[in-house]
Design a protein around this nucleic acid. Structure first.
Length: 847
RNA sequence: GCGGGAGUGGCGGAACUGGCAGACGCGCAAGACUUAGGAUCUUGUGGCCGAAAGGCCGUGGGGGUUCAAAUCCCUCCUUCCGCACCA
């Protein structure tokens, strides 16, 4: 089979190697995919997430791009001015690690990979405008990262602070919160626990946009997958509540502790105040406390316990009493201050009040340590709660009314929250506050292969931004890479030692580089104007192309990349560089290609290389198969067996058209005149247009590429069934039908389609052809004049009758009763009800 | 635990708003052509009963709504993904 594609003896002349090379050359010569902003034409921006060039390009990548290419090609055929670019996410850790291992330069490694990826993508004939190719590791790109950084610095959106960060001992670098996975592991080294370390870091103030990032998700509804929106929502994690200062009794140096709660209405039920073991006040509280001797060893043990969050959720609650008391600002009651392992330092104020009656976690904790439980909200219905008899907390949010809450008794929780928050504000021991789970984005990386952060540190002037005119701050060409210790840039004195841009005195450069998610946060803007050396892009060009009409990528980027991109977009909007709120109107998350039940990846050794695939079957077969084997949103299990089906189909189409090439070559265009069609012509034309209508729907509305292909297979089977076409089918109609097949195939198997198009005698390339639109005459031709109507008796299929399209109930019933099988089931019974759906179904209900 | 998907032949998967379940493809079986075929073409292929006609069962399990349910409702199970003590 496949081998014969190279020897060309498969009983047909389909030779993908030859055909694909031929047409790729033609497309390049004719500059078919090169595009410019043109306000007189409707635009369509379709984009696949840019790849990180590492290892081999495999069929998992390829599927992603095949999906995008179908969309690009269909839109182009439908008359849109299509922007479909490709580039490389070229900075990153693997390049650096590979360089260390192979004693080479990250740039060499990266550029080799890029070359390999490019070859593979070109081999598949994707319709990219290659003039717009970008590579994020080039100074012409990353200088704009630096430029944006400086703008953010000016706007107070970039800042530096000493902070506890995630440190991966293997990467020897800081990880963003988002890069810590599975509750405490490095995203690259899934077996390595992330440690905590304190260093000076640069941050971008994503939290300044928390509210907008959340609100604007509404604008994405319908266009983005629901689950992505949800994941972002959870990640941003807005919650409304109040911060309350709780006075501490008799502890020198500790006046009060601030807690955060969403349920201030339950504060009369607070019977303890709980701090996490890492809380800075814990040691002060213990100092001189009567409980010190007993509690300190226990506390030490708690601090040693696992920090894995996956364990945290199921871990038993443990606590120690500090021996100290706090005073409830509402009731004036004293409550003990405890340390509890279930309280999160990072969330809220890092301290909570425990309301055991109305919070399950507090309930478990207080029950275990014998702390009192006090009901302050009674349910509206059913038995009133009795503290001693409760087996779980009464948590039903916003249900019930307040009791034992002083002047607030009788209020609903909602009313109480408003009044009690106001009271706390009035007495200035608390205030209403909205907090977010979202953190600022730590972008400092102690690595070489990234964008240098453009600031210097001067003894006299402190931190000084590098002036725009000195951009880009270039990476030093020959770093010492060891993969250990501080940033490699710090080891290069020529890079580090500079003059202060302000005073001209001696200064040191910042030696950290930026997180590579910075690169991918705005790259799609650069495609609009990739070689601009005055600005990141021309706003007018961006205004034409944006927003991205269809963005396509893996679900793995549902949070990181997409959230940062949205943030970047909003910052650029506030800088008036752009005038839209969201970068991508529609997002599609395609499924992964798996082999042996797991995603293809080099490290698992289960990749099917794209180039191997192209050499064996050709690019068109590879493209067709990835589109046919599963709907695009679902994972696809690679099967070397089923791909034969796609290969066979293309051969079948080729043979069909090859056989008729001679008879249709001289034929004129058919004028779609329905008069005078023979029955055979009529049938062929009808099914062709029916297929067109459905395939168009599958492409445009439903993205069911797999069923579109199935329809085309059916059509081809049908044409075969009408063989020989030369008998009783005029050559112009043969040509019409075969041309339609070719056009419908074109977005998926573009090379073969061009070849067939030429064989059918079209003088102009298929790239200039339009997607066929069904005109009135064709719709007329599409219509069936006889339909087969299934007949049910009591809901079970008993027969089928042929009737004229649009036949009335009476007529169909008559026909149905004439059917012996139907009659058999109706005989001797009374027809109680007739359900008739014209042209679709008849159901006779008998009793 | 919370949230979101998904469960259809031996396999990948069809079935647009409830209206012929299993399209299309893989695999398998039989046949044709052939020196040969792993090429091509034809036919068959959900299960059970039956020689056949035909009948019954059938979309994870159970229940319901309806003339009619893979599709809608309730409930349970399995599985994948995300978040995970968020106060």
């Amino acid at each position: 089979m496949a081998e014969q594609s190279t020897t060309g003896t498969a009983g047909s002349g389909y030779d993908p190697q030859k055909i694909e090379a031929k047409w790729q050359k033609r497309w390049a010569e004719e500059r078919v995919f090169e595009t410019e902003a043109d306000p007189s034409k409707p635009k369509y921006y379709v984009l696949e997430m840019l790849p990180y060039p590492s290892g081999t390009l495999h069929m998992g990548h390829m599927r992603n791009y095949a999906i995008g290419d179908v969309v690009a090609r269909v839109k182009r055929m439908q008359g849109f001015n299509v922007l479909h670019p490709m580039g490389w996410d070229a900075f990153g850790l693997p390049a650096e690690n590979a360089a260390i291992q192979n004693n080479t330069h990250p740039r060499t490694w990266t550029n080799n990979n890029i070359a390999e990826f490019q070859t593979a993508l070109r081999r598949f004939g994707f319709s990219y405008d290659w003039r717009r190719e970008i590579s994020t590791c080039e100074p012409e790109y990353y200088r704009w990262n630096q430029w944006f950084f400086l703008r953010m610095l000016e706007r107070g959106l970039a800042y530096r602070k000493k902070s506890r960060v995630n440190w991966c001992p293997k990467c020897q670098t800081v990880l963003a919160n988002e890069q810590v996975i599975n509750g405490g592991y490095c995203w690259r080294h899934e077996d390595t626990l992330v440690e905590s370390k304190e260093i000076e870091q640069w941050f971008l103030k994503t939290t300044a946009y928390a509210e907008q990032l959340l609100d604007d998700l509404k604008q994405l509804e319908g266009g983005w997958p629901e689950r992505v929106i949800l994941m972002q929502k959870n990640w941003i994690g807005k919650s409304q509540g109040a911060k309350v200062k709780i006075a501490v009794a008799d502890v020198p140096g500790v006046e009060s502790i601030e807690i955060f709660t969403t349920r201030i209405d339950t504060i009369y039920g607070a019977t303890a105040l709980i701090l996490p073991p890492a809380h800075p006040l814990v040691s002060k509280l213990l100092e001189g406390s009567p409980a010190r001797a007993e509690s300190e060893p226990k506390l030490a043990k708690m601090r040693q316990a696992s920090v894995k969050t996956e364990d945290l959720a199921t871990m038993e609650k443990v606590g120690v009493f500090t021996g100290r008391y706090a005073v409830n600002p509402f009731s004036g009651e004293k409550m003990p201050i405890w340390v509890g392992n279930f309280v999160l330092m990072e969330y809220g104020t890092g301290a909570i009040m425990a309301v055991p009656a109305h919070d399950q976690r507090d309930f478990e904790f207080c029950k275990k340590y014998g702390l009192p439980i006090r009901v302050v909200i009674q349910p509206l219905e059913g038995e009133p709660l009795v503290a001693g008899k409760m087996t779980e907390a009464f948590e039903e949010h916003m249900q019930g009314k307040l009791v034992h809450s002083g002047p607030f008794d009788g209020l609903s929780p909602a009313e109480a929250i408003a009044k009690m928050t106001a009271f706390a504000e009035e007495k200035s021991f608390g205030r209403g506050e909205t907090i977010f789970r979202l953190r600022d984005w730590g972008i400092s990386r102690q690595r070489y292969w990234g964008t240098p952060i453009p600031v210097v540190y001067c003894e006299k002037d402190g931190m000084v931004p590098v002036p725009d005119r000195d951009l880009p701050v270039l990476l030093p060409p020959n770093p010492k890479l060891t993969g250990e210790g501080e940033s490699p840039l710090a080891t290069d004195p020529e890079f580090v030692n500079v003059r202060c841009p302000k005073c001209g005195g001696p200064a040191r450069r910042e030696t950290d580089t930026m997180d590579t998610f910075v690169d991918s946060s705005w790259y799609f803007y650069r495609y609009c104007d990739p070689h601009n050396d005055k600005a990141p892009f021309d706003s007018a060009k961006v205004a034409y192309w944006f927003p991205i009409d269809q963005y396509i990528g893996g679900i793995t980027h549902a949070i990181l990349h997409l959230l940062y991109s949205r943030f970047w977009c909003k910052v650029m909007r506030d800088m008036t560089l752009i005038n839209h709120n969201e970068p991508a109107a529609r997002l599609f998350t395609q499924g992964m290609v798996q082999k042996g039940g797991v995603a293809m990846s080099k490290s698992r050794g289960n990749v099917v290389g794209a180039i191997d695939m192209a050499e064996k079957y050709g690019a068109d077969t590879g493209r067709l198969y990835t589109l046919f084997a599963a709907p695009p949103e679902k994972d696809l299990e690679w099967s070397e067996e089923s791909i034969e089906g796609s290969w066979r189909f293309l051969n079948r189409v080729y043979r069909l058209i090859e056989r008729h090439a001679v008879s249709v070559r001289g034929a004129k265009d058919w004028n779609e005149d329905p008069k005078g069609l023979s029955e055979k012509e009529r049938q062929l034309v009808r099914i062709t247009y029916q297929t067109l209508a459905r395939v168009t729907q599958d492409f445009d509305k439903r993205w069911h590429f797999n069923s579109a292909i199935a329809l085309l297979m059916e059509l081809v089977n049908e044409i075969y069934a009408h063989e020989p076409l030369e008998q009783g089918v005029r050559s112009e109609i043969q040509r019409e039908v075969l041309s339609m097949v070719t056009l419908m195939l074109a977005p998926m198997t573009p090379h073969l389609a061009e070849e067939l198009w030429e064989m059918l005698g079209h003088s102009d390339g298929l790239w200039n052809a339009h997607w066929p639109m069904l005109v009135l005459e064709q719709k007329e031709l599409m219509r069936e004049d006889e339909v087969e109507i299934p007949v049910q008796v009591n809901g079970r299929l008993r027969g089928k009758v042929k009737a004229a399209a649009g036949a009335g109930e009476e007529e169909v019933v008559k026909l149905a009763l004439a059917d012996p099988a139907v009659a058999h089931h109706v005989d001797g019974k009374r027809v109680v009800k007739k359900v008739f759906v014209p042209d679709r179904l008849l159901n006779l209900v008998v009793a």
